[in-house]
Design a protein around this nucleic acid. Structure first.
Lengths: 355, 355
DNA sequence: GGCGCTACTGTTAGCGCTAACCTTGACCGG
DNA sequence: CCGGTCAAGGTTAGCGCTAACAGTAGCGCC
């Protein structure tokens, strides 16, 4: 009986001409503020979101009223009505690795002042975990997505392709013109360091790769290419370990090399914390660096300028990468075409005492 | 003319008996899935959120249909309708300080598997910034809030009091029975270390306080109390600097002490990274540690077990604090009373070579 | 005087989901 | 055979906000 239903609806509508002063949650709503300020709800909405559309005095009165009532806009309702969540999902492999924390800082510094919120997901270097996270964060209908690296599962790629949400890849550079990327050439970093070691006269240069993520492997590639060109590459001087990078592991590697009777005159560690651990252990064991063994790292962590000896390394512009990626994403989210689809932010080689 | 309005409404309602297959955003909605699976929307909702209410085969069919359509629930709509955002706001003072990053890891590990999302705010040790962040995060109607420390502005306190959202304070312990807190006694840490230094025979013990946040000041208090009891407190051996803690600053402090002709035979640094910097600089300047100068830190950062000499410090259970705080919050959010309102997770004193 | 224009403010409808209630049919025991 | 119970699914209304459109007033101008 549709007639009855309509009658009922009308009756109910009339009955609650004015609702009790607050919503279900006990918080003031936009309608409450509107009523108190003697305007309509939409005007309150505009006073907050499009202030230029409301007469200055009225706007001030509305804002004052809202303040006095402790009104806080409901972001879920806003997101639902406007189809804009003002949220960006960021996926990084690790939170304990300073490199990504600083990238995050760059992202935060750019996006937060512009009203965007950041949802941080940690994939622990596992593409499958990343896929799970993507699924979770899609529920938030993020206006944009920032991904680390380029090794994503097929499903992740499908999700992202099916989605409208703008996406920018960080750290590594992509040649695919459909993808936006900001980063630096990890391979180039590997070449820079290896070339430096060759120039310093080292001939039996080892490489320690851990975590085995694509960035580490790219550095290894750069190392291998350079040594192969010099006719000095020897697989026996390459160590590959899936473990996460740590000072402890770096120290352990020195022990292992000694135990194995390695003939290296220099070792290029894929990460600064490994190299720092190696330096500490060399000091303990009385191995003179760089005379007996040269040690090199990657990323330029803060302590690397202070160890004894100080550590030769390659500085990566991670803060700048985060900031730049966020800026590109912002362009996309606001409908502008970013200046470039692929931004190489370069590397800085830092020669110190350890080589 | 209400009659006409009603007629119009009915006409429109009939017209769109079935909407086009997707929503405004182009994504499949629950209604789309329901139609395809031949059930009502609420059943789809239940298949996801209350699976025990839907017959197993039907549930599977719904989930399969959803999957095949690439359906992702809209969290904003869910939050609006259910008044539960499944979101927790976490405010920490710094992201580059490992202590808080590990706290975050504990929080994540507990909350994410239970379906909660975490919004991270960084206050940069500024209560006013924290207040701003609180205001921002309240828009998300978080189901719970985790705060670091106890120095909040009056406005922050007012907001939190006006709010229903459960709140747990981390790191420091509160005596206020209205507040839940998880942490350890920073003051106790200061006493532990100072007592240790006294026992080792040091008599002119200095203290370097940086950042000057409440936790640092509490450690300083513990130090002062202990030395006063021993009749050895001397204000001239206390340095207070507002700068953030860093290796660099620790090294600089050694230089400054030398330049000032300080007579300390031991220095207690309020943070491990400062102490590490001091150790590095002592090594550079040929100051023998601990013979000429003992060095002590706080927090037990990873590198502290590897420096030369290794660093005496106090380990704080930050991961456990994060996890425990999250567990208490979860209890509150799910309507249970937590086992205790104030959890002291203790400290571990670690004697190493530097003292 | 009428037209267009700008500057404000309001009305209506609906975003996608779920709480609360309602219906249906199967099963059970006396 | 009937009332009671329960599991499984549906109906209705509305969460709090904003897009889109619809006024309305005031002004300038020919």
């Amino acid at each position: 009986m549709p007639a009855k239903t309509l009658e009922e609806t009308v009756a109910k509508t009339l009955a609650k001409t004015r609702k009790p002063r607050s919503s279900r949650t006990g918080r003031a709503t936009m309608a409450d503020v509107a009523e108190r300020a003697g305007v309509s709800a939409i005007t309150v909405s505009r006073a907050f979101k499009r202030p230029e559309l409301v007469a200055p005095e009225l706007r001030q009165r509305i804002l004052d009223t809202a303040q006095s009532m402790g009104y806080v806009p409901n972001q879920a309702a806003s997101a639902l009505a406007s189809a804009r969540s003002m949220t960006v999902a960021v996926l990084i492999p690790s939170m304990t690795n300073m490199v990504f924390v600083e990238t995050l800082a760059g992202i935060h510094d750019l996006l937060l002042p512009r009203g965007y919120q950041v949802l941080i997901g940690v994939s622990h270097y596992a593409p499958l975990e990343e896929e799970r996270l993507i699924r979770t964060y899609l529920q938030f209908q993020p206006d944009g997505i920032l991904l680390t690296g380029t090794d994503h599962t097929e499903v992740t790629r499908t999700y992202l392709a099916a989605l409208r949400s703008p996406t920018v890849h960080m750290m590594e550079l992509l040649d695919d013109p459909d993808c936006l990327s900001v980063g630096c050439s990890q391979e180039e970093g590997g070449r820079l360091m290896t070339t430096h070691l060759l120039e310093r006269g080292y001939r039996r240069i080892g490489f320690v790769a851990v975590q085995l993520d694509p960035r580490t492997m790219a550095r290894l590639d750069g190392y291998r290419q350079t040594l192969e060109e010099a006719g000095l590459y020897d697989e026996a001087r390459v160590w590959r370990l899936p473990d996460p990078s740590s000072i402890h592991l770096g120290a352990a590697m020195i022990d292992r090399m000694m135990a194995e009777g390695s003939d290296c005159d220099a070792v290029f560690f894929c990460n600064d914390d490994l190299a720092q651990g190696a330096l500490f252990q060399c000091q303990r064991r009385g191995i003179r660096v760089p005379d007996q063994l040269a040690v090199a790292g990657f990323n330029d962590l803060p302590a690397s300028a202070w160890t004894t000896p100080t550590l030769t390394t390659v500085a990566t512009p991670r803060y700048a990468i985060g900031r730049h990626a966020a800026a590109m994403l912002l362009d996309l989210m606001e409908g502008r075409e970013p200046a470039q689809r692929r931004a190489d932010l370069g590397l800085t080689f830092i020669a110190r005492e350890s080589t």
